[in-house]
Every structure is written in structure tokens, then in C-alpha cells.
């Protein structure tokens, strides 16, 4: 078990190191995110919608689209020189790779969300009063983890297919329950309403737990070669 956790740690930190080294890719993802946020909130301004209510939707649409870029990158690195083969041979259990990658992607998405959120907050002109900070943090953290878990699982497949652009169409249908739940959570957090929030908190937890545990069984088949 110690070896298992140690290997997750080793792969996780190597992933982050590589991410930092290729920071331009992350930065272009951030620019893409800010641009998406800008365009959407601007578009809503043009149609005279109360922009303070659209924040949760725009936030999560942006994170969902950006997540595709992040997760795709993480496995592309492994396949570049087939390093993944040496890695798999060194790891006893293939799920190590899943958890390390999902954690790395989670970290990236979380940082991304923390950058995007204030920008969106300003664009949408939302009042800070009455915000339930705990719920907001919860939805950002748990939402990013769910995204990272599902995304990691699916990219591990698509990266093995020749020039395949399948990731978004595989990923988004699976993410719809999470999407509904985190948008609701964020909305309730901003409105400062606690009534009904607990149900969504449970729902996101169940979703995340499910998609964190399924790979324990199924990831083996994805990387069978």
C-alpha cells in the first residue's frame, strides 16, 4: 500500500513539473477561458439579461470546455515517446496512473477555476454580500475533481486512437449530472441560500465517489494494450 501511494506521489509531481515546464500551454488555456468568459458575459449584456444570475452557468461551461484541453495534454505527454509503456511496466497497478493523472488534472483545473472565477465575478457584477463561501469552495473543488476523474478516464482511451477527436463527445454526456449539480451548488452559494443545498452536496459527492472508484476496476481494461 505504501508503494502504491508513493508511486501516485511520484507520478503526480512529475506531471506537475512537466506542466510547469510547458507553462505556455496552461497560459493559453487561461487566455481561452478569460476570452470565453468575456464573450459570454458580453453577449448576455447585449441581450439585456440580468448578468448576476448567469455566473454559475458561464463559470461551469468555461471550466468544462477548458478541461478538455487540460486532460488531453496530460496523456499526450505519455504517448509522445511511448514513455507510458515503461511507466506501466514499472507500476504494479495501472490504477496508480489514473489517480496520479486525475490528481494532476484536478490541480490544474482548480487553479484555472480560481483564476477564472474573479474575472467572471467582475464581468457579471455580482454582489459579494450573502455569499456562502464554503459552498462555493466546495462546488469548485468537488466539481473540478469530478471533471478530472471522468476526463482522465476517457482521455486514456482517446489518446490511443489514431488522430481521434472523440473526447468531447464521449465526455460531455457523462458529465451532465455533475454539470447540473455544480451549477446548482454554485448558484445557491452565490444567492446565499442553504435550503436544498445539502442534497446537491450529497449528489456531487456520490457522483465523484462513483467516478473515482469505477476506474479501480475499469482502468485496467483501458490500458491493456
Amino acid at each position: 500500500m505504501n508503494g502504491y501511494l508513493r508511486n501516485i506521489k511520484v507520478v503526480y509531481f512529475r506531471d506537475l513539473k512537466q506542466e510547469l515546464r510547458g507553462l505556455d500551454e496552461f497560459l493559453s488555456m487561461v487566455v481561452f477561458g478569460v476570452m470565453l468568459v468575456f464573450i459570454t458575459s458580453f453577449a448576455f449584456q447585449l441581450t439585456d439579461v440580468d448578468t448576476s444570475r448567469i455566473l454559475p452557468a458561464v463559470l461551469w461551461v468555461t471550466i468544462f470546455f477548458a478541461s478538455e484541453l487540460a486532460v488531453q495534454r496530460s496523456f499526450a505527454r505519455e504517448k509522445e515517446r511511448n514513455a507510458i509503456d515503461a511507466l506501466l511496466m514499472a507500476l504494479g497497478d495501472k490504477s496508480v496512473l489514473f489517480y496520479a493523472k486525475a490528481l494532476a488534472n484536478f490541480t490544474i483545473l482548480l487553479v484555472f477555476g480560481v483564476i477564472i472565477l474573479p474575472v467572471l465575478w467582475i464581468f457579471c457584477d455580482v454582489s459579494l454580500r450573502g455569499v456562502n463561501l464554503w459552498l462555493l469552495v466546495f462546488s469548485l473543488v468537488w466539481g473540478s475533481w469530478g471533471l478530472a476523474a471522468v476526463g482522465t478516464m476517457l482521455t486514456a482511451m482517446t489518446v490511443q486512437l489514431p488522430n481521434s477527436r472523440l473526447l468531447p463527445i464521449l465526455m460531455f454526456p457523462l458529465l451532465i449530472p455533475l454539470f447540473i449539480a455544480v451549477v446548482r451548488c454554485t448558484d445557491l452559494a452565490i444567492l446565499g441560500v442553504t435550503e436544498g443545498a445539502l442534497g446537491w452536496v450529497y449528489f456531487v459527492s456520490v457522483y465523484d465517489l462513483l467516478f473515482s472508484l469505477l476506474p479501480l476496476i475499469l482502468f485496467e481494461f483501458v490500458l491493456e494494450g
Binding site: 512529475r14 513539473k17 512537466q18 505527454r77 509522445e80 515517446r81 511511448n82 514513455a83 509503456d85 515503461a86
Partner: peptide, 15 residues
């Protein structure tokens, strides 16, 4: 316990 010198070097380019 299995070493494999494959056709591809199996290394990370940006490390």
C-alpha cells in the same frame, strides 16, 4: 523486474 529497451526510447521529452 522486466527491462525493455524498445524501438521508441520511452522517455519524457521535456524532462
Amino acid at each position: 523486474s522486466i527491462g525493455y529497451v524498445a524501438h521508441q526510447p520511452m522517455l519524457y521529452d521535456n524532462l
